[in-house]
Amino acid sequence: MRPLILKGHTRPLTTVKYNTEGDLLFSCSKDSQPTLWRSSNGERIGTYTENGHRGTVWHLDVTVDSKYLVTGGADMTAKVWDVESGKKIFDFPHTGPVRHVEFSEGSQMFVTVSDPFRGSPACISVYEFDPNAEQPEGPKYMWEVNGLEQGKKLSKATWMPLNKNLLSADEFGVMRLHEVESGRVIREVHEHTKRINAISWNKEKYLFMTGSADCNAILWDAAELKPLKTYATERPVNAVGISPIKEHVFVAGGQDAMSVTTTSSRVGKFETKIFHMVFADAFGSIKGHFGPINTLAVHPEGTGFTSGSEDGYVRVHEFDPSYFEMHSELDDLSALQTM
């Protein structure tokens, strides 16, 4: 498995994301240049920079039809782009750096998470998304998270199935289920003990995974918000992914960049681990980055995955045929039962 190594960013990667079909790959980094790549060959198609972000771009998301891109940056704006032309369509000003942006199911809305800044609290905003509107409209709903201390940060907010609720995650590892309109907290879950760095859904959105600085990743049942499996690693988890074709999950991260500068890359364990989804044992690890892995995206067809790291590189991995042939006797229940 020789990865494509994409050298386009000059600063640490913050997010990588495939479109619905998986032929396009979006990436953004601290260098303020969201970039579009062809996932099959690593060709750089273009960047989204015209009247673009100033400073770090923290997160991005793409509509289900791959036509529009939303980006959120440290310059306190979320921006919507036309994917094909690279033109910016809208600017959405916020009260603090924008940490997270995510389209709803069907891409008719998107949610943003902004940091506390100069007295303004951490905020979750929901926008209606109409690409044909003349002017960008302000947020439809905007609320603070009840129970989060003033000045503390949120890291994520994700749409629950059918856009019925929003799930937020904060820097203490607490997750809260909210009413979309009011932000009222319906449930609070304390399973992680440190900042939640990543949330990732399976295709049909009944399973999702969280990764936390407490070195664990957890697989959840979305309907009951119940932890199903825990994947333990030795380093903070920054990125997670669920395979759409196998009972495998991907967990990546590494020692915090601050504390590894003087040691070799092996101490940091900058690797992506593959766990069996049910047995929760790590059976593979993919090394190569020389800084912590900040973000990861699994190809929608399950043929590979892409990781982006603090080292400024994007590595696009395509699995070898042996991965698809790999067949644990345990995966086959009927065979097991006859043993």
Partner: peptide, 18 residues
């Protein structure tokens, strides 16, 4: 392992049905 797998797959099947 069998019971874990069985349980997990049953849950997934149920959720897929929904």
């Amino acid at each position: 392992k069998i019971s874990a797998l069985q349980e997990f797959r049953d849950l997934c099947a149920e959720r897929h049905e929904i």
